[in-house]
Amino acid sequence: MAAEAVAVEVAAATASAAGLKAVGAGLAVGLAGVGSGLGEMGIGAAAMGAVAENKDMFGLALLFTVLPETIVIFGLVVALLLMFQ
């Protein structure tokens, strides 16, 4: 009886560790995504305005708009490492 209880407990602990990993990975991507979105919000709106005024700005506008997106990539990498390391 005691041995079975210990086995169940160990299994539960492993499962919850895996679950917490998954939760962590989700938080890493999700929160980083929110951050990137907030960053890109203002830049994107301004970039649209600039491109509407002058089409030559497109390249530069695109560049500025995608700058904050690195953050979510870091989030994604952290999540991948958590899940598959």
Partner: peptide
């Protein structure tokens, strides 16, 4: 550091 790590997107986006 951030620029070099930024290249990990090649794999990260691909994996997604």
């Amino acid at each position: 550091i951030s620029h070099v790590l930024s290249y990990t997107r090649l794999i990260a986006v691909g994996l997604s």
